[in-house]
Design a protein around this nucleic acid. Structure first.
Lengths: 147, 147
DNA sequence: GTGTAAACTAGAATCATTCCCATGCAAAAG
DNA sequence: CTTTTGCATGGGAATGATTCTAGTTTACAC
């Protein structure tokens, strides 16, 4: 399978936990998952994987560029598969839904600001928090239930 | 003093811990402080304030709009006095220095994106992480020592 | 001044995450 | 295809940040 090859390409041994975690992230209906979410998904598939391993592997995946870690409000990290295309995030604080967007003008202005400061940017993140349309209109989200 | 008045205006009793914490945040040479930083600064002034109180008060200040909480990389919250003027942040991962900037074009594009999604934005944050000029040039930051 | 609700302190508890180390397993070598 | 070798894993303990709890103190209205 290709997950195994992807891991090797990233310089990581193709172990069972890593393959499983990668496939869960790829197949996830909800793209943005906490370590706990991934752990629960593993348990549901009947895998015997420790929570410590999930954290360790997600951190390795982040270092290898396979996943992106986000520090949203709330103090826990969420992860999403890195599909190569950078995008920013809009988070509904009511239902937890995460919307993605990309705005070339914003990216360009950010680049200019960093340049003017003589700053080498490794990564950047733009998050907007608020209430989504579904919550405003119907008191529940159009895509999923409130947490 | 005006700190006491500011607190009452925000609907908070003017207690000693609150007054002290507010004045520390206002007088801070380094604008962005963790709860631990604030706690240590209190101890240095000889105040007997519990760490739990610092966390509670900072959260109340955030709810009252007196301070802004940031969730930078690293998992701990940092706080800064809310001086009314929104700005975004550039964080040097080498020396910890935080630079602030404001770009009206970015703000406008964000507003448009939210509008197109029908999203009511409560707050938004834009962080860039990387290496500052001082670290690149001299191996140390121009403004302060590495952490 | 006095009463009362709100706020405080210290320490225990909780939550997310990481560490530790004996055992397991993937990839390289034979 | 077996052995070797070392990185990876699992589970529980440890850590660090933050929050809760209980009993005590304090700000402020009357």
């Amino acid at each position: 399978m290709s997950d195994s090859a992807d891991l090797k390409k990233a310089g990581l041994k193709a172990t069972l936990p890593r393959i499983k975690i990668l496939s869960i992230l790829e197949a996830a209906k909800v793209r943005h998952m906490t370590a706990e979410d991934v752990y629960k998904a593993l348990l549901e598939t009947g895998e015997e994987v420790g929570l410590a391993t999930v954290y360790r592997v997600l951190t390795q995946f982040e270092a290898a560029g396979l996943v992106i870690r986000h520090n949203f409000e709330g103090g826990r990290s969420v992860f999403e598969i890195n599909q190569g295309s950078h995008h920013d995030h809009v988070v509904c604080v009511e239902c937890g839904e995460v919307f993605e967007f990309y705005d070339p003008a914003i990216e360009e202005r950010q680049r200019k600001v960093a340049e003017s400061l003589g700053f080498d940017v490794d990564s950047h993140s733009l998050y907007m928090y608020g209430m989504c349309l579904g919550m405003k209109r119907h008191g529940h989200c159009s895509k999923k239930d409130g947490h």
